[in-house]
């Protein structure tokens, strides 16, 4: 099933299919951290009031904003 990271539930995992809709700088930074198409991610927590989300990938945790997270398409695992 294809969903957006921002729409995953806490603890759910997915593999990134499509990331090119996000802001260029954000994409660059995620790439620096080794997160790109094909990476496996897991949604760890969600901040209230539309705040950022925490995502885990290859053992490292990263915070990104919700508006970015809903631009990243993943295939649910």
């Amino acid at each position: 099933m294809i969903v957006l990271i921002g729409k995953l539930k806490k603890g759910e995992k997915g593999r990134i299919l499509h990331i090119s809709n996000t802001d260029l700088l954000v994409r660059r930074r995620l790439l620096d951290l080794g997160i790109t198409e094909g990476s496996e991610v897991c949604l760890k927590c969600v901040m209230p009031f539309g705040g950022p989300v925490m995502v885990e990938s290859c053992g490292q945790c990263i915070g990104i904003r919700r508006k970015e997270a809903i631009q990243i398409e993943v295939e649910k695992l």
Binding site: D23, V26, L30, L33, Q60, C61, I62
Partner: peptide, 11 residues
């Protein structure tokens, strides 16, 4: 300028 927020959360 749009703002950018990507932060690494170390163990």
């Amino acid at each position: 300028e749009t703002s950018l927020f990507v932060i690494e959360l170390p163990p």
